[in-house]
């Protein structure tokens, strides 16, 4: 039986005076990879940030394991839920290992030294993300792909059962995009991590997700398994494209192999 880990009820979020979405409800199932797709400015990232308490909602509730998040301390939330934000920044002179150790913050009691448990988790995070090799380098010396893996490792060091990723593959080349997504997939399969992410590439979303949420103009158009969402009519409605879809004979996931922009509709 699949249970819900995050449930958003009638969320309204605003940037200054601009309402990104209002009265939005959705839920995230445990142990699955859920991907939010939609055109630029549709509110994907804002939704992700709201359910991870980075942005405060105007109204509505987010329930984490059926508990209202407003009632849980931010540190306690950080033990259950980690977020890799869209364009993370760190001082360039910081060493990789130190940055990853920042992920241990919610678990640390004293600020002085890392416990052996902390060290263990850091090693594990570096191992999974294959960043052990450059643990002693400074952030400045890393390529974009390496940096993204380091950031992922920092989120993993938080040791949470839920991982939120905001466009984890943007700015990466094809090989690194795939590498990051395969790490995510491995986390889900082997470590039973619940993953929620925002992706721009529909085919990546279809291939790696159990569940898709399609958004447009601050509303959830539809949600469901990739086979249902990657369909001509849905893509037409969400992205305003005329897509040709087939099934990848290798892994059975739907692939959109060509598309044309439809004329603007108002």
């Amino acid at each position: 039986m699949v249970t819900t880990v995050i449930r958003a009820e009638r969320l309204t979020t605003k940037y200054e005076k601009f309402t990104v979405f209002s009265e939005l409800s959705t839920s995230i199932k445990k142990g699955q990879i859920t991907t939010i797709i939609g055109p630029n400015g549709c509110g994907k990232s804002t939704l992700l940030k709201t359910i991870s308490r980075i942005l405060k909602q105007q109204s509505g509730e987010v329930f984490l394991q059926e508990q209202d998040m407003k009632g849980i301390s931010t540190k306690a939330i950080a033990k259950q839920l980690a977020l890799l934000s869209q364009n993370p920044e760190a001082p360039l002179q910081l060493k990789v290992e130190e940055l990853i150790s920042y992920g241990r913050f919610p678990h640390r009691k004293n600020v002085g030294t890392l416990s052996s448990k902390d060290m263990e988790v850091i090693e594990w995070a570096m191992d999974i993300t294959k960043t052990t090799a450059f643990r002693n380098r400074e952030i400045a010396q890393l390529s974009g792909g390496q940096r993204q893996k380091v950031w992922l490792a920092m989120a993993l060091a938080q040791e949470t059962s839920i991982l939120l990723l905001d466009e984890p593959t943007t700015y990466l080349d094809l090989a690194h995009q795939l590498e990051v997504l395969q790490i995510v997939e491995r986390l889900n399969k082997e470590h039973h991590c619940t993953i929620v992410m925002v992706l721009h590439d529909i085919n990546h979303a279809a291939r790696f997700s159990d569940e898709l949420i399609a958004m447009k103009n601050g509303e959830i158009i539809t949600a469901g398994p990739p086979e249902k969402i990657i369909a001509k009519n849905v893509l037409k409605e969400v992205f305003n494209i005329d897509a040709r879809i087939m099934v990848d004979p290798e892994n059975g996931s739907p692939v959109c192999f060509g598309y044309d922009a439809l004329p603007e509709r108002e």
């Binding site: 940030k49 991870s52 308490r53 980075i54 301390s73 931010t74 540190k75 306690a76 939330i77 950080a78 033990k79 839920l81 980690a82 977020l83 934000s85 869209q86 364009n87 993370p88 920044e89 760190a90 001082p91 910081l94 920042y102 992920g103 913050f105 919610p106 920092m154 989120a155 938080q158 905001d166």
Partner: peptide, 17 residues
């Protein structure tokens, strides 16, 4: 202050008030 050198979302996500 070391943590504050990260960008805002990352800091919040670590559970820092």
């Amino acid at each position: 202050l070391d943590y504050f050198q990260l960008e805002e979302s990352s800091i919040k996500s670590l559970g820092i008030q």
